[in-house]
Design a protein around this nucleic acid. Structure first.
Lengths: 352, 352
DNA sequence: TTGAAAGCGATACCAC
DNA sequence: GTGGTATCGCTTTCAA
């Protein structure tokens, strides 16, 4: 393989820093102008077949690849989007992340990933997102009004994923958590459950809040009082501790536990069975939310509401790309109903 | 907030494409040279306190942020690394991905994520990785010798994660899968198991191959013959099907099942219990590999070998960054022993 | 269709 | 310490 300009051998072994071939190198080798090379590599450009062949041959020889960084500088388009994700503790996110990445990739867009430790330390990450001139952002972490404005000022469209700020004029894709919880509560009450308890997610999680409020509202509507509440962190262990705490509060097991997500519901079931010797759903019903993989394990078969991840990620990707193409598009919110799964972890009325 | 150069209003609402402030805008506003602005934003550069203040004030006013793309072009350093990951079916990878990202982030490096559908369609993705001029690559997907050479020619260091190609001269971080399997087999045999079976992962997975061979070798050494084998895909359901297939092959349940990963081990346990009415570990012992979250659920409490993800990702990150700093460093392989977990899914000799 | 030349937004080397 | 200038590798008018 011919080397660009370097004298000496190609690099006897590994990793000797090497000057990469540029369009000039290719042009010289092919005996054409540099602009010609550029045109050949641009999809809909004008170039004769002969030219095209000579350039491609030369490019092949020196292993030329257009420099996406340089291209981004001149075109003002990096073809990268930022994906901001906070605590991946919730087993739902990895799945979302991969789906998003694959969908963007298949459309020629690269994903720059930002994983926040907590939902709080957003500031530093956002600075980076802005410095890298991404064309758009999908965020599964909350943004303040001020932060949102920074993106708006920079002309960078943002799509919120399962996070809808107060501002009405934002783009958002979300699952209807409240509706899902209301359904779960309705089914449980109809099947005769009366002593309820809730294990919430982290206090700073908007999703957890929406779920908890949805469940609470419905319970109140149906005249259920004295709901025991425990706070968790979306993790398995906090589900176990949550159940223990609830039993302590009530002095006896509840009829039903509403966990803010599947992981905690699973922990809850394990605690009820292993430590308290209870039968699930015989003695106590447990419901979750998300529809993650383990929810369908035979040991749990969770009654839960599953987020339609494929449709939601597709929606987020297309909404964002549309807005990158046309910045005049008005804000849009897309809300998806969860998929109701009548598993075996709750005693529900059979019919209906 | 003052606008760069635009006449007219800032953008009446959302997303009107906006020219971003450049160092020239800041320089003009601060009444200094553009180079001065550049210096102020460069960590160890020389600038008087007065200068620094004027520049920072002006930058603040126009919301200036250095353009990382432009910087990358001139410095030949994008401060981005590519992370290539293949099938995320294996629940182990999401965790790895997040850990890698956070560790890179905390060192000021951004992660460009490439998620391959299958381990096969590497070519297209690699092209992109090269076009984006990443400073280095961590790959959890296999690369051919030719592909590896492309990176070497480009002077881009590569670290393999749990994937060690035949070539001796590569950087790699991996868990010692064979050793882990040998331990598992040893324990099982010592506890009296004789009729063994294995559920492997996908045929194109080097990790699965190493695990299967490790187990097979040890079994042979210990004089165990007639091992039933089923092929899975690392997923829960294939673990269930694998167990069913094994029982069919043997005409009766085996003493022990060695699953190539935890997810399949869990599926296997569920199948044994729910469909075949067997007691685990009473009737059949099941072991896995990885140490993923669900392995520790009370319903399973897997006997398994856990990959030290924190240490492995840290090793991968530091190995890569070292080689980005100094391209002369010789190739290095770091092999980590798995953490042996004597869970409750296998009947093991108590002592020892 | 093709080539020459002007940027994109920064860094870095150079005098002063 | 500070400012002028070449440069990174590409896209994009604009003439020829």
């Amino acid at each position: 393989m011919a080397q660009p300009e370097n004298s000496g051998r190609p690099s006897a072994g590994s990793g000797r820093a090497q000057r990469r071939a540029t369009s000039y190198d290719v042009a010289r080798l092919a005996g054409v102008s540099q602009s010609a090379v550029s045109r050949v590599f641009k999809p809909g450009a004008s170039a004769s077949a002969a030219m095209r062949r000579r350039v491609m041959d030369a490019a092949e020889q020196v292993g030329y690849r257009p420099n996406a960084i340089a291209r981004g500088l001149i075109t003002q388009r990096s073809n990268m989007v930022g994906v901001i994700i906070s605590k991946l503790v919730n087993l739902n996110y990895p799945e979302v992340l991969v789906e998003l990445t694959q969908r963007f990739s298949s459309r020629g867009i690269r994903v720059l990933l930002f994983a926040l430790e907590t939902e709080g330390d957003t500031a530093a990450a956002l600075d980076q997102v802005l410095q890298y001139r991404v064309d758009g952002v999908v965020t599964a972490a909350m943004l303040s009004g001020e932060q949102l404005k920074m993106f708006d000022d920079a002309g960078i469209p943002v799509v919120f994923y399962n996070r809808a700020p107060g501002e009405p004029s934002v783009n958002a894709v979300r699952c209807d958590h409240a509706e899902g919880e209301r359904w779960l509560v309705g089914e449980l009450v109809q099947a005769g459950h009366r002593r309820f308890s809730i294990i919430t997610g982290p206090e700073d999680s908007p999703v957890s809040t929406e779920r908890a409020l949805g469940a609470m509202d419905k319970l109140r509507e149906l005249g259920i009082e004295n709901v025991a509440v425990a706070t968790g962190d979306y993790g398995y262990h906090s589900g176990r501790e949550g159940f223990a705490s609830i039993v302590r509060q009530l002095g006896e097991p509840p009829d039903a536990v509403i966990a803010a997500n599947d992981m905690m519901a699973i922990g809850c079931i394990d605690e009820a069975r292993a430590v308290h010797g209870l039968n699930v759903p015989g003695d106590v019903s447990v419901v979750g939310f998300d529809g993650v993989g383990p929810a369908a394990y035979a040991a749990y078969l969770l009654t839960t509401v599953s987020q339609p991840v494929a449709r939601m990620t597709e929606a987020a990707v297309s909404m964002l790309l549309e807005r990158i193409e046309d910045s005049e598009l008005p804000p849009e919110k897309r809300v998806f109903s969860g998929i109701r799964i009548r598993g075996g972890s709750a005693r529900l009325t059979v019919d209906r």
